[in-house]
Simulated assay, not measured.
Amino acid sequence: MRVAIAGAGAVGRSIALELVESEHQVMLIERELTQIDPGAVEDAEWVHADACELSSLEEAGIEGCDVVIAATGDDKVNLVVSLLAKTEFGVRRVVARVNDPRNEWLFSENWGVDVAVSTPRLLAALVEEAVAVGDLVRLLTLRQGQANLMEVTLPDPTPLSGRPVRSLALPPDSALVVILRGGRVIVPQPDDAIEAGDELLFVATAAVEEEIRSALDV
């Protein structure tokens, strides 16, 4: 997979290192010459250019990328990069960093964003996930806000203990995707029994969250 990252600061470089380790082709685009450091991510392609300029993206070959990540520290820049990548170059997947949670509402399909990642919101969700038992916690928003990744850790005791997965009356537009039990990752099958302490991960639209809570009795 070929990935372009706009912004070669600490965040952009960290993402690039992870992707390179996973054997993806990575291109880092950075307008500040002082941030250009090929030695920091040796296997990445480095481009000194302004990712907000159409001509710069064209010269960089952005249309050949499968994913564009707008990872600068400026929300305005990230929105412009996302819009250009999606509308001008037809990039299939655009991921954008949200620096100020107050701007999160802007990071939608109207600006070409497929997935918006808000670090403050994500950290808050992870804190909730770590300490909350018996409550449904939203971890991540997917696909322009159309679906969310949610988690619940079942209390002990729970009325669901011993019941098969197929007995969960989950609403439409929702799915139980994995059960975490101790050190195990379980892909749920209809006859698998639910146990107290299980960590359940769901993908669902925001509209059915209350119905999921009712189905889980949490």
Rank of each mutant, 00 (worst) to 15 (best):
C65W: 00
L54F: 14
D74M: 14
G73F: 02
L54P: 06
V77K: 01
W105S: 10
E59H: 12
V41L: 10
A70E: 05
K76V: 15
G90Q: 10
I69M: 06
A49L: 10
G64V: 01
E63Y: 08
A85N: 00
R31Y: 00
K76E: 13
V95T: 13
H48L: 11
V47G: 05
R31D: 08
L83Y: 05
L83Q: 05
C65R: 06
A70L: 01
V80I: 15
K76S: 10
A70F: 01
V68E: 02
P101F: 03
E63A: 11
E104F: 04
E45Q: 11
E53I: 12
E104H: 08
A96G: 04
E45T: 13
C65A: 13
V98T: 07
F107S: 08
P38N: 06
I36C: 02
L28I: 02
V94G: 08
W46Q: 00
L54H: 15
A85D: 00
T87W: 05
A85S: 07
V67C: 04
A70V: 06
E53S: 15
P101G: 15
A40G: 12
A40N: 10
E58P: 05
C65I: 01
R92S: 12
I36S: 00
G90C: 14
A70P: 03
L28E: 01
S56K: 06
R93L: 09
G39Y: 08
A60W: 13
S55H: 15
A51M: 13
L106D: 09
L106E: 04
V91F: 07
E45S: 14
T34F: 09
V91M: 11
T34A: 15
V95L: 07
K86C: 11
I29W: 03
E30S: 02
V68M: 12
F107K: 05
A60M: 10
E88W: 02
V91N: 15
D50L: 12
F107N: 10
S56L: 09
A71C: 08
V77F: 00
V81K: 02
V41I: 15
V95D: 05
E42Y: 11
D75L: 06
K76Q: 11
D66R: 12
E88N: 08
F107T: 13
I36N: 02
L54D: 14
L79R: 05
C52I: 14
V98Y: 02
D66K: 13
T34D: 11
D37T: 03
R31P: 00
V80F: 12
V47E: 04
D43Q: 14
D100F: 04
F89W: 14
V81A: 05
